[in-house]
Deep mutational scan, measured.
Amino acid sequence: ITIHVNGVTYHFDNPEEAEKFAQKMAKTYQLKMEIHNGEFHME
């Protein structure tokens, strides 16, 4: 699972971890999250 946050790329093997991380980042930084081709993009 690949997550892009403001141009920084994070890779996770565990989908649950990826989702937790994505939600935490979105909440902490008030980010808008989109999913493209199974990759999370946040800005």
Score class of each variant (00 low, 15 high):
residue 1 I to Q: 04
residue 1 I to V: 08
residue 1 I to K: 05
residue 1 I to C: 05
residue 1 I to L: 06
residue 2 T to A: 08
residue 2 T to L: 12
residue 3 I to L: 05
residue 3 I to R: 00
residue 4 H to M: 03
residue 4 H to I: 07
residue 4 H to R: 06
residue 5 V to G: 01
residue 5 V to H: 03
residue 6 N to E: 10
residue 7 G to R: 05
residue 7 G to W: 10
residue 8 V to L: 10
residue 8 V to Y: 11
residue 9 T to N: 06
residue 9 T to M: 10
residue 9 T to L: 09
residue 9 T to E: 06
residue 10 Y to D: 00
residue 11 H to N: 06
residue 11 H to K: 09
residue 11 H to M: 07
residue 12 F to S: 00
residue 12 F to V: 00
residue 12 F to L: 01
residue 12 F to Y: 02
residue 13 D to W: 10
residue 14 N to I: 12
residue 14 N to Y: 06
residue 14 N to Q: 07
residue 14 N to T: 10
residue 14 N to D: 11
residue 15 P to A: 10
residue 15 P to M: 13
residue 15 P to C: 15
residue 15 P to L: 13
residue 16 E to C: 14
residue 16 E to I: 10
residue 16 E to W: 10
residue 17 E to G: 04
residue 17 E to D: 09
residue 18 A to V: 03
residue 18 A to Q: 01
residue 18 A to I: 01
residue 19 E to I: 13
residue 19 E to T: 11
residue 19 E to C: 15
residue 19 E to L: 14
residue 20 K to T: 10
residue 20 K to Q: 11
residue 20 K to W: 07
residue 21 F to T: 01
residue 21 F to N: 00
residue 21 F to A: 01
residue 22 A to I: 14
residue 23 Q to T: 11
residue 23 Q to R: 10
residue 24 K to S: 10
residue 25 M to T: 02
residue 25 M to K: 00
residue 26 A to Y: 12
residue 26 A to H: 08
residue 26 A to G: 08
residue 26 A to M: 13
residue 28 T to I: 14
residue 28 T to S: 05
residue 29 Y to M: 03
residue 30 Q to N: 12
residue 30 Q to V: 02
residue 30 Q to H: 13
residue 30 Q to T: 03
residue 30 Q to D: 12
residue 31 L to H: 08
residue 31 L to I: 09
residue 32 K to L: 14
residue 32 K to M: 13
residue 33 M to C: 15
residue 33 M to V: 14
residue 33 M to P: 02
residue 34 E to S: 09
residue 34 E to F: 14
residue 34 E to L: 08
residue 35 I to F: 12
residue 35 I to G: 05
residue 36 H to L: 11
residue 37 N to C: 15
residue 37 N to W: 09
residue 37 N to R: 03
residue 37 N to S: 04
residue 38 G to E: 04
residue 38 G to P: 02
residue 38 G to V: 03
residue 38 G to L: 04
residue 38 G to F: 06
residue 39 E to T: 03
residue 39 E to N: 05
residue 39 E to H: 08
residue 39 E to I: 09
residue 40 F to W: 15
residue 40 F to I: 15
residue 40 F to M: 13
residue 40 F to G: 03
residue 40 F to E: 02
residue 41 H to R: 03
residue 41 H to I: 09
residue 41 H to A: 03
residue 41 H to E: 03
residue 42 M to D: 02
residue 42 M to A: 05
residue 42 M to S: 03
residue 42 M to R: 04
